[in-house]
Amino acid sequence: MTQEQRGQKASSWQAARAVFWSFFGVRKSSDYDQDAVRLTPGQVIAAGLVGAALFIATLVGIVYVVMH
């Protein structure tokens, strides 16, 4: 990783990916190293809340399909 990349702030997409893997509980260590330097706490919290909402929506969707 170059110094330039290091300083860069992560995109929302990267935050979303980090949160997705965290729900599963696994993270590749090279990806994690990037997360650690580039994600801000605010991004992680926002992505976490969106992720939780999506997770609930998916479950509700599955329940809907099962019941109809």
């Binding site: 965290s22 729900f23 509980g25 993270r27 260590s29 994690y32 976490g48 939780a52």
Partner: peptide
């Protein structure tokens, strides 16, 4: 093994524990 994934898994458990 998997320090980062431990941190992530812990946060994930914490969030999911509410639903």
């Amino acid at each position: 093994f998997g320090y980062a994934s431990m941190v992530y898994a812990t946060s994930s458990i914490a969030i999911l524990s509410f639903i």
